[in-house]
Structures are given as structure tokens and as C-alpha cells.
Amino acid sequence: MDDSTLTQQQKLKYYQKGTFTVGNRLVADEERSVQASAERSNALTSGHRACQGCGEALGARYAIDAAMRATGNDLIAVNATGCLEVFTTPYPETSWQLPWLHSLFGNAAAVATGVAAAMRVKGKKTRVVAQGGDGGTTDIGFQCLSGMFERNDDVLYICYDNEGYMNTGVQRSSATPPAARTATTPALGPEPGNVFGTGKFVPKIAVAHGIPYVATATVADLRDLEAKVIKAMGITGARYIQINVPCPLGWGAPSYDTIKLARLAVECGLYPIFEAEHGRITQSRKIRRQVPVRDYLILQKRYAHLFRNGVDDPRVQRLQAICDAHIEEYGLLGDDAEA
């Protein structure tokens, strides 16, 4: 892994307290995160109808505020159908404080391509972000997304991954993890919950397209997330960022555990955090305090069937094996775990 690609935002080590916090009263304003600023754009403002503790609402504000700062507020967002669209924009109300466009469930990438082309034709420098949930990205919108990648259109596509179709009642998507209970993968029968399939990890598919920039992030590491969005906005061409956004409703977790769950998903190795440029993985975020996957699963009712009668289901070990494979593949353990 090449350390030189670490941006200042990621590297900045605060003082003994506050290294990992949103801001810090002891450092200069320009060294603080976008979210620490009283002047942040609040692209997704109050009054939206997301559930209490919504990870997606949080992730979207984090990402779009950072993109707004990076583009000097010259930004248009295109949204796929999904929670994010529904809870922010029940006509005639909207929570978006930037130009925002919604067409269909599956065509956000294609619409964004069109908006970018229109801006180019009109001689404007306005940048374009497309965004959607995992359903609108990894299933329904996948064809349009792959086309946008392959043509290297100048769009940053952000997928807020909450691992299911939460808006319509928690159905399984191709991003739902194995063993998780959803409305369509009930905790019944000999193999309760979602199947242990072959997996469909869209960030790696994006890397395989050889596009200029791919990254994963979570709402648990704001500075890393902002750094990646700002970096992506400095690049021309197709870019993809997938953000893990816990869903208290769909995951069966208390609303206050949203950030904790995102943190544990990373610390156990289940959700690898990395960056890739032009088809090659350039760096990964190291695990800081490793935990067994059990610590992550047991907090969520969608995995409750794995822990019935005080006995761990053998499939907990299969999930641990997935974590171990990620740790190996992405090099998630190592010295700069403190960075």
C-alpha cells in the first residue's frame, strides 16, 4: 500500500483527545472537518422524515456537504428512488438545499450522465453527484451504473449501503449480508435468513471497470469519508463511493447505535474500507481495535436467530471467516492502525 496517497485530512492526528472526533477546539478551523463548521451547507436539512437515528440521512449530509465545499457549492444531485428520495422529498416539501433531480429507481446514473453532458454543452463548470441506496445501485440501477463507469462519464456516484430495501419494508437486496433476516429472507427453516451466496460487492466491480476512483467509507469515520469525497471531486471522470449506513429499522437496532454499528462493521473486518485508483487498490484503512464479528452481529435483531437459546449458530463462524478473508485480502491489520 502506498502511504503517500494519504491525504492530509486523513493523516491529521489531533491531540490526545479528539483525534477521532468531528472537530476539536484546539486546532485551526481549516484543519477541522466540514461537519465541524457552523457554515456547512446542510445540503440535507432538518425536517426530513427519516427514522430516528437514520444512518443514510447522516451519510448523505456528510457526503454532499463535503462535495459542496469541494465544488464551491456548484453542484447538482441526481437521486435514485429509495429511502433517501422518499424521506427527503414528499412533494411539495424538500429537505435538499441544492439543485436536486429524481427520475426513476434504476436510472440515476444515466440521468446524471445526461446532466453532466448538459452542463458541458452549456459551458458550465457545475459538477454532478448521483446517489442512491444499495437497491437502486447494486440491483435495479446496476446496468446504468456500469454504463456510466464504462463510458467514464464525469459523475461521482455515491451508494448509501444499508443492506436492503428498507423503504418498502426491509426486503433483501444483493447487498444484504448472509444470514441477515429480511422480509423476504425470514428467520425460518433449516437455513434461516439470507443465503450464503457468492456475494456481490459493487466497489470491487467498480474497480474492475478501471475507473479513476473508487472508495468505501462509513458514517463512523467522518474524516475519512469527507477526505474521500473531496478527493473524488478533484478528479474528472467516473467515480464511485460506497458508504456503509446502518439502518436502525431494517437491522433491528436501537436508534442510538447507528454509528457504533458502522464502527463495529469496520473493526471486525466485515466491511473493508479502501481506496482504488484506475483499477488498483491503493490503500486500506487499518482496523484500530479488532473485535470478533459476534460483537457486531449480536446487537442486531436481524441476526437474533444466530444466538438463540444461548448457543451460537455455526454460521457465526462462517461470517467470521468472511471477515478473516477481508482482513487478509485488503491488509486490514497493520501499523498505521493509529493514523
Binding site: 483527545k17 472537530g23 476539536n24 477546539r25 461537519q35 465541524a36 446542510n42 449530509r61
Partner: peptide, 19 residues
């Protein structure tokens, strides 16, 4: 100690930073 965490992590933008 004014770390801005509450201001940052609120999904509803319902924390006001007073300076």
C-alpha cells in the same frame, strides 16, 4: 470540550453550534 461530535453526528441537523 467542544469536540463538535454532537453537532456532527445528528442525522437531523438538530444541534446548534453557538461558537
Amino acid at each position: 470540550f467542544e469536540c463538535d461530535n454532537c453537532y456532527g453526528v445528528c442525522p437531523d441537523n438538530a444541534v446548534i453550534k453557538l461558537g
